[in-house]
Each structure stands twice: as C-alpha cells, then as structure tokens.
C-alpha cells in the first residue's frame, strides 16, 4: 500500500496519529512524519486516518 500526504494541506491536527500510530507520528520538530509504504495489514487503520483528516490531505494509492 502506498500512502501520500499532501504536506501543503496538512495543518498538524494529528488525528491520523491517533488513528494509525504505526504509520503516522510527529517528529521532534512537531512536523508530521509517516511511513510511505506501510504493510497491507495496516490498511484499516490507514483508511481510518484518511477519513479523520480534517484537511483530507491523506491519499491511499494502491
């Protein structure tokens, strides 16, 4: 699975970090960091993360 976050849209709400902590996190500088090619077993939580992003900045490309 391929995950793309539009960092021009991201406003650091962090909802994706709650939904899929194995894929999304904040780095030491407080900016969003993520795993661009997570294991397919994480699909449910990545879809949840995409759903709850207030900016709808997360895209899942198969």
């Amino acid at each position: 699975m391929k995950v793309v976050v539009d960092m021009n849209k991201c406003q650091d709400h962090g909802q994706c970090v709650f939904a899929a902590p194995d894929v999304f996190r904040f780095d030491e500088a407080g900016r969003l960091a993520y795993v661009p090619d997570p294991d397919d077993a994480l699909r449910d939580e990545v879809e949840e993360a995409a759903d709850v992003c207030p900016l709808q900045a997360i895209r899942i490309e198969d």
Partner: peptide
C-alpha cells in the same frame, strides 16, 4: 498555536 493543541492531545 499547534503547541497548545498538542498539549490538549496529551490528555486524550
């Protein structure tokens, strides 16, 4: 700012 929002998130 976002620092305050992050502080709120720590109570989630």
């Amino acid at each position: 700012g976002t620092g305050a929002a992050a502080a709120a998130a720590r109570h989630r």
